[in-house]
């Protein structure tokens, strides 16, 4: 089978001095092109580590990541990351933050005017074109995350990696941004791998939900298909049996079979 993105027998062990901790154990996952996959698990289960391995920011101890059958082990714009805390550079304007990536990725393939238009195009995709000359400190948390998404999208990644992208936002802003991401996924057909700890978010957005057991030595406990038609509407789903069933499955996994003992 030709998997688009393949996580192949990934183990990750952290060594500090003489103490070694096995964080991830034998992670296998294949993701098809255009698929939206969420990884959910309790905090500390190593899901962010897994995303960092896919992004190439952390190396795997064993195993590896294959993107279109080629191994990737260093970070690159083909796997753009939307970071949890937006990570915009505070000394650059919104426009310049997005342009930083665009200038690198399209240095040879696009002219200066084309790159400029491309930055603006991506800012308008996330409805942030009006704030292009603002600095990150002058816009709200939700807007910062929109710019973070625009920066990642503008690199035309093969896989978009979202690291708890809505975690730091209030509930209303989060819902709004989730709808935006859904609309973008619908429109652009990106392949997306998202880390989350929010059950509703996972069910609402994903085609498949990967549930991780608790660490240390976290594994993939279960993979759940979400058989809901797109486009999905938040309000309609609230009473949809399929939605509720999926939600129930994830909740059972997280709180019955793998409840987090040291919950803090």
């Amino acid at each position: 089978m030709q998997a688009y993105l393949k996580l192949d027998h990934i183990d990750k062990t952290f060594t500090r001095g003489s103490a070694t901790t096995e964080v991830l154990k034998d992670i296998n996952l294949t993701i098809e092109k255009g698929e939206y996959v969420s990884i959910i698990g309790h905090s500390g289960c190593g899901k962010s580590t897994l995303l960092n391995i896919v992004a190439g920011l952390t190396g795997a101890t064993n195993g590896g990541v294959l993107l279109e059958n080629r191994e990737v082990n260093s970070p690159g714009p083909d796997r753009a990351v939307v970071f949890q805390n937006h990570s915009l550079l505070p000394w650059l304007t919104v426009y310049e933050n997005v342009k930083l990536g665009v200038d690198k990725v399209f240095a040879r393939t696009k002219s200066k005017a084309e790159r400029d238009a491309w930055v603006m195009h991506n800012l308008s995709l996330v409805q942030m074109a009006h704030a292009k000359d603002k600095r990150p400190s002058e816009i709200s948390g939700g807007m910062k995350q929109r710019v973070g998404i625009a920066r990642a999208l503008a690199m035309e990644p093969k896989v978009l990696l979202l690291d708890e992208p809505f975690g730091a936002l209030d509930a209303l802003t989060r819902a709004h941004l989730q709808d935006s991401v859904m609309a973008l996924h619908q429109k652009l057909g990106n392949t997306i791998l998202m880390i989350t700890h929010d059950v509703d978010e996972a069910v609402l957005l994903s085609d498949r939900i990967v549930m991780m057991t608790n660490g240390p030595s976290a594994r993939i406990g279960e993979v759940l298909e979400v058989p809901l038609a797109r486009p999905r509407k938040r309000l309609e789903l609230a009473t949809n049996q399929g939605y509720l069933k999926c939600r129930q499955r994830v909740l059972e996994f997280l709180y019955e079979r793998h409840s987090f003992v040291e919950a803090a």
Partner: peptide, 12 residues
């Protein structure tokens, strides 16, 4: 570290 990560992803 965030800024370093951004730089790494963008491949500066």
């Amino acid at each position: 570290q965030d800024y370093r990560n951004v730089a790494a992803v963008v491949q500066l």
